[in-house]
Nucleic acid binder design. Sequence first.
RNA 1: GGGCAGUUAGCUCAGCGGGAGAGCGCCCGCCUCACACGCGGGAGGUCACUGGUUCGAAUCCAGUACUGCCCA
Length: 859
Amino acid sequence: MTQGAPADGRPADAGARFVPAEAEPRWIAAWQDSGALDVDPASDAPGFTIAIPPPNVTGALHMGHALNNTIQDVLIRRRRMAGDEVKWIFGTDHAGIATQKKVEEQLAAEGTDRWQLGRERFLERVWEWKETYGGRITRQLRSLGCTLDYADERFTMDEAYAAAVQRVFCDLHAKGHIFRGDYLVNWDPGLGTAISDLEVEMREVTDAMVEIAYPLSDGGGELVVATVRPETMLGDTAVAVSPDDDRYRDMIGRTCTLPLVGREIPIVADEAVDPEFGTGALKVTPAHSGDDFEIAQRHDLPAVSVIGEDGRMTAEAGEAYAGLTPEECARKVVEDLGAAGVLRSEREYTHEVPFSHRSGERVQPLISLQWFADMEALAEPAIAAVRDGRVRFTPERFTDVYLAWMENIRPWCLSRHLWWGHRLPVWYRGDEVHVGLDAPEGEGWEQDPDVLDTWFSSALWPFATLGWPERTDQLAAFYPTQVLSTARDIIFLWVARMVMMGLEYMDDVPFSDVYIHSVVQAPDGRRMSKSLGTGIDPEELIAQHGADALRFGLLMMSSTQDVRFSHDRIAQGRQLVTKLWNAGRLVVERGGALGDGEVAPQTEADRWMASRLTAAINDADEAVGGFRFSQLADGIYHLVFDEYCDWYLELLKAGQATPEVAAALLEQILALLGPVMPFVAEEVWAQLPGAQGMVIRHAPPRPLGGRDPEAEQAVERLKETVTALRSYASERGLPRRSGVSVWIDGPDTPEADTLRALAGAEAVDAPPEGASVVGLSFGRMHVAPAGGIDREAEIARLQAGIDQADSEISRAERQLGNERFVERAPAELVEQERAKLTRYTDERAALVAELAALRGGGQ
RNA sequence: GGGCAGUUAGCUCAGCGGGAGAGCGCCCGCCUCACACGCGGGAGGUCACUGGUUCGAAUCCAGUACUGCCCA
């Protein structure tokens, strides 16, 4: 199994199989030790930078990471080979909520909690946790073969990074973009903190919808409102109706009396009310509904908070309800409304309600004093940057997604009621508030206990990692970055904010291309997730099939849309690895070696393969340029399997190709392959006599000459002939080396040796007796099996051939008979159609003649 | 409620204006001196539906039906 590694690090014996588990660690170490990954900001070479979307320190590699980082590694490796000074910025994110939860779970297991520990000790525990477990994803990225700048690892809670965060907060505050206020926030009762709009997800829920009658204060009737949250009626401060609703027109401006509470509240007209929905009358609870909060602002209505940050009913809800949970309160309110005789109806209602993406609990909208960033001023240049193409999205459609969000940008709730994170640089003393890096002079100042939304620090990633605000060499050499590759679900959370911050603080976009990769779903189309049990662990796949196979398979799957995970694609990658390994062995065995000078293709087969390589290199460049990674992987696969192995190496064995050229071509194939499947590329390279250095620093794949149409045509005809002969033999159940005699009536008759080697057929000088006639695109071939032909079967086959030709002829005639086609279609196409007509007419005539001869001769 | 994407071979997906492709699976035959994680040969699609544009539509446009996602 394992080919024991001798002193020079190369496997001793090149067995039939490549063993990834043995080879991969060797190459990971070799890349590192050779200095191939070193980054030099002082280099004269052009810089090429990608900033990794920093994985959470708590994270383990999932399929999305595996795909995304394979893509980035392909880009990085290609540019490194091209001679750029590449930097793939590496680091992890402190991930406030996720990390704090992990440590809290740990504490719970120990029978304690963060309150007992106290803030300082708790934070120490988080750091300890990070030191102990935080390196997992780093190790996993290494085993995937990712060539990040591991030597310069960043963490969003590093001292220098934290200083950058504080500085930006203070600066945005000084510029008036950050403010503190009482606004409606998404309160996560599970975590006891506000969360941003983007951390909220809508889920479908079935609630009870009740209709409640609010009597008009002047005794002139009642107004029936519908609600799924009866407990919030305790906080109602108005009823709103549509201004166009005739049913309520005469009530606008009057007041009604809130049942159970007795508060007199106005009836207002507002465009936001949908007269079709419910009764057309909307109870307005500004403190616990986003829509209602906005209506209240338009009508200058007060807000009454009846649910507190502890998730329970407040004193303002009334003595009877204070202290209850909202659910308990809802039941009691309905009961009391019933008793009061104002409950009009009750039914089930299914609708979408907000849940915390973080804790999974139902979000409680409530008014709270928080710090916000007003993003409008920052959004403006970020919109311009995308509109004028300084930042391009691939696939393009995400441009509109980005712009739509940016153009309707809302204030960003920045404060999180957590302990782990960047603490707000804000100080309080009584009613005094100070924003600054340090507490002001004087006694009694206390720092705000809250921390910043994790995404606030992530927004600075492309430049804070390079040492900003210091004017470092790294910053000068590597900002802006070139490509950001990331998942669709963080376009707003992260991408948009990086653009805003980059423009604000670096006066330049943080990257010029944003590539949004596919979401990899479970094989059954569900989301891949641990909780659903649908997750597939990339680490296991690496162990089973090798990192190259995983990388290849993921690239094959990647697309402009979401894709289902396919084990078969990984298997396909593994097959390619094995194929290459064995191709390498064959080339070496046949005496292929790399020399010092240029190698020119010698034979027709050499020239054909060189031409195909040239095409493949061009296709690969084009694919990568357009971020079409499945096309890249597919192209390499077919070059290796269908061209190099199936035909070229077979021709080499048949003595029709040159070993030196085979080696030179393999070198370029490995250079093309290296960024995609780096391990097997190195391993095969290391086996090639004369190979210097490693693929990781090899020059980019170089064509061995341009396209060669002549050689391509000749080999295409050879392939067609060989395939036709194999088919012929296979259909008749002839043995593999069938020994049929063949005579070809047409140009480009392949060498007798080639036909013997590839098709097991014997070329003869004249049309053999008793032969079958088989049509080829460039002529006809007469094939005579040793045992003679089956006349009946041949007659049937010829008849089928004639029928086929007839249908082709009538198709071509129909096309050419269409005047409009002849007039309007491109001349080239019309010409093609004419040539086709001639060809099939000739073929038909030949087949008819053969048929006649066969019938006549058999008498 | 608004928007975006998808519907192509049994499965997973390419193709996106000139005669339907890949991988896997399936059938037949091969231990051919690189590779049985292999080699050779084959079968298998009215390209969701309806209309339109065009000499020509899987490919462009409009609509319908499902499916998924995003925003409200």
